[in-house]
Nucleic acid binder design. Sequence first.
DNA 1: GATTTTATTGTAAACGCTTACAACATTTTT
DNA 2: AAAAATGTTGTAAGCGTTTACAATAAAATC
Lengths: 336, 336
Amino acid sequence: MTIYDISKKAGVSIATVSRVLNGSTNVKPRTRKKVMDIIEQYGYKPNAFARGLGLNSMKTIGILCADASDLYLAKAIYYIEQKLRENGYHSVLCCTGYDIEAKKESVNLLLSQHVDAIVMIGSNFIMNTPEDNQYIKDAAATVPIMLLNADFDCNNVYCTLCDDYKATQDATEQLINGGAKDILYLYNSNSYSGLKKLAGFQNALLTHDIPLKKQFMQCFKGSHEDIDGVKGFVESLHAKGLKFDAIVTSDDFLAVGSMNFARANHIKVPSELQVIGYNNSILSHCSEPELSSIDNRLEDMCIQLVKTLIGTLTQNEMPQKTIFSGELIKRGSTRI
Amino acid sequence: MTIYDISKKAGVSIATVSRVLNGSTNVKPRTRKKVMDIIEQYGYKPNAFARGLGLNSMKTIGILCADASDLYLAKAIYYIEQKLRENGYHSVLCCTGYDIEAKKESVNLLLSQHVDAIVMIGSNFIMNTPEDNQYIKDAAATVPIMLLNADFDCNNVYCTLCDDYKATQDATEQLINGGAKDILYLYNSNSYSGLKKLAGFQNALLTHDIPLKKQFMQCFKGSHEDIDGVKGFVESLHAKGLKFDAIVTSDDFLAVGSMNFARANHIKVPSELQVIGYNNSILSHCSEPELSSIDNRLEDMCIQLVKTLIGTLTQNEMPQKTIFSGELIKRGSTRI
DNA sequence: GATTTTATTGTAAACGCTTACAACATTTTT
DNA sequence: AAAAATGTTGTAAGCGTTTACAATAAAATC
């Protein structure tokens, strides 16, 4: 069933059918109805390829994320997909993993598919070296690139992010002001934002004239699923004699793992050990006590990202950077 | 940059370039190299629309799920996307929500995009009435439909599922054999599998001559995020005077909410109340004690689903139904 | 070396749509 | 009522591929 079949049955030209389908130009109401009825009757659906070929756009946005099974990324996908659909766009998803080559390949794939824009979810798309980030610049030469929770200066690259640095600094300072002495910072590899948060943590200590010690900033290298691994990791630090009365983390799963460690070692939370998570995910409602966690306003960010995206695609001038402020949501795992 | 540009620069016809790109037919090695070099040099990427128009396939699989932010569904997306990519396919994602109309619309969208197959993740794609399921049959007339964790008899529809019925029955029987007397079953709306699990629960009771009581089978209507809501829900049952010494659930978040209820009411788990979750998700590692949960082998199912899918697309005869067995993973929330 | 067979390449017709432009019909203006 | 303006529709030329078929080149056979 093609546009020709419909045009024949409706007794009009294919151009008219096309016009009815696209709704743009004027079609006489009676003609429109006639065509619509035929379309309805035969359940005709235009071929998206042919349409894409003609328009060179398929109203499709490519979404990249390292790992859709990560709680946080999954939620972002959900929000963004939903908002895009509300705007008449749909999305092609690629989970790239954390390897740079896979990311580059995925970008190429999306470009060859002529997506109208590419959304990259998570700071792990930004690498340490300019050469490794060249792929973003290259892609930006073709389509707008929207980064969620990552910061990158480049024309046609739009960033929507949360000031993780400040949020972590604030939370840490609250702990310090509340009397915490030895604060352990726990982050996971896999992302730039972990380092940003770390910087915020360090700045909080420096502001209060607390010397930075390397062993108080630990990177957990395992997966975001491996809560037991985190527990073991913290346990090993503890066994080595490291003393801490608070833990600030870059992700809720690290915090939950830390709390499991505490429980197993009969360390009371929050009286003997305070714990702060990040992302304010569902995990923060599962532990006992519930987890204080930094909320970085994911939904707001996603809404904003799509708004900027649609604006850009419709030729409006859009701000290249939108920064939200995170906020510590206090629950039972802290005394502050 | 089109295939014409490349053909001109390489001094061959577009057909030869196309053959090089598709690798199928014979091309003289020297010619191939010459063309490849030009392609490399100019970074040429074929236009996916035109290709799709020609081939009427874009090596794309449509993935539907109600809500990518659901832990379980997100993991499934992840596994499936990954496996598909390994097989040279990519995926278009649509999150449909739980509304039937939205689902139908999404299916149409995917069909108009000429996806090679559609994967539906979750039992919520199966409705209660045959009319409401017609959309699946219609879609199956065009492309193979792969259902994950749902059961539907129809030509060209392939189901990969876990025997939730039996898994729940087994787990419940284990509780009964372990001495549990008043077992509450807690499920969430939104899915057929919840009802299947419920049936398994009921069968376990019947097998042990325990009369079924309506108030011991409760449906939580809130979101999968709303752990506090679950807690309140169980609390209200408790306040109404319902006595239970075990809770079997259809999802880990219900189990975690139940445990939060128990803690708040100083009911000891597992000595006074045993709790069993479903999905064996990350949530089962967050609570204290850790949650016993039924594992329904999601990864295995996803691997199998993609295997069946690829087989079907390559014209191999594939089993229409593959059923895995779930298994109770015992942790601290049960005494069995 | 002529003939047959096989490997390689080119030509041209789809694929199903959009849209500029032309043609025609209708309404408004004079 | 003719002329001009406007509204509606049709014609045909792309869009960038794939691929059947034809044409040519190379290899094998006689």
